[in-house]
């Protein structure tokens, strides 16, 4: 007992066929990456011979192999990884796999149908959902810059991270990860993937500015704010300084309250991270602090964040 013959026109059947055709076409550029113990993780052929995946799914940096959609296996070398955006880039020995077609930024719209593809083994996997929320630029908890906030409304299964989020027409909106926000399906937009891929391919790492301090937000007393003419309600009190780190060498002290960096107000930790892009390394910054009830300016030469191995 069927509703209609397979030949008949039907909205539902058309949608089903289109979704499967999209999954099949883009699936040719989705690979399985063998770099962890339990099951392989998913990756996307982003450019010719270049595979992008989620950094947290790679448990090792060497001895990585990749299974292509055709079932063939090839070796891959890690070009670099950026845990702060949860992206990693591999160079494939076999460049014969077609790269995916990227969506435009204007395609990032709430409500768009999205297929999340994966290959956590020999088979292609698909799940269906929608773009749930789109926001502006944001910082991950590790300080990585992501150009747009893209939340997906779909179920997260094995192989989700590192696979592509694909618009129904077959263009790739971004790389999926569940590793940046707990149990939330996020897509790292194509612009971010491109930027990080460029950096990882050219230098093997994403360089980030570094001050060598730990700080906590602190509400500023009204009297102090009024006396010093401080615009913000919150500053960051320095609670730890790395010995001989950039902040200590510049003369910052434990207990200093950071209120601005290069004239820009600092109200929470992400403001500080935002001011520490890779382009700032080696340059001098003016850190405005409150020390012993008085305002001071301290010049600090921004260092480079030490490379941390790991996920």
């Amino acid at each position: 007992m069927t509703t209609s013959a397979p030949g008949q026109t039907s909205v539902l059947a058309g949608l089903s066929r289109d979704l499967a055709a999209t999954a099949e076409a883009v699936g040719r550029s989705v690979v399985a990456i063998h770099a962890r113990r339990r099951i392989p993780s998913s990756g996307v052929v982003w450019r010719s011979g270049i595979v992008v995946t989620a950094s947290h799914t790679l448990n090792r940096d060497e001895d990585i192999s990749v299974t292509l959609a055709s079932g063939r296996s090839t070796t891959a070398s890690l070009a670099g990884r950026d845990p702060s955006t949860d992206l990693a880039v591999l160079r494939l020995e076999d460049a014969a796999v077609p790269p995916v077609e990227r969506a435009e930024e204007t395609d990032l719209q709430v409500g768009r149908l999205v297929l999340a593809l994966g290959r956590p083994g020999p088979n292609l996997t698909a799940s269906l959902g929608i773009v749930s929320a789109v926001g502006g630029e944001w910082r991950t908890w590790q300080g990585g810059k992501v150009d747009r906030f893209v939340r997906l409304d779909l179920s997260i299964y094995d192989g989700f991270s590192g696979g592509p989020s694909v618009e129904a027409s077959g263009r790739v909106l971004g790389i999926n990860t569940s590793g940046l926000a707990r149990a939330m399906a996020l897509s790292l937009p194509a612009a971010t993937v491109d930027r990080v891929t460029d950096q990882l391919l050219s230098s093997g790492r994403v360089s980030r500015g570094y001050l060598g301090l730990a700080a906590q937000p602190l509400e500023l007393p009204d009297a102090l704010r009024e006396r010093l003419g401080l615009p913000g309600r919150v500053g960051l009190v320095i609670v730890n300084l790395e010995p001989a780190g950039p902040a200590e060498q510049g003369g910052l002290l434990l207990g200093d309250i950071i209120v601005a960096l290069d004239g820009r107000e600092v109200g929470d930790y992400s403001d500080l991270l935002a001011a520490l892009g890779g382009d700032r390394v080696g340059k001098s910054a003016v850190v405005q602090v409150v020390r012993a009830g008085e305002q001071r300016s301290v010049n600090v030469v921004i260092g480079e964040r030490p490379a941390k191995r790991g996920r």
Binding site: M1, L15, L19, A20, A21, E24, L117, L128
Partner: peptide, 17 residues
Amino acid sequence: LPAAVPGEFDGLRPGEL
């Protein structure tokens, strides 16, 4: 009784509704 029409397996693809 109205009976099921069984489908094939071989032509199925991920993403199908």
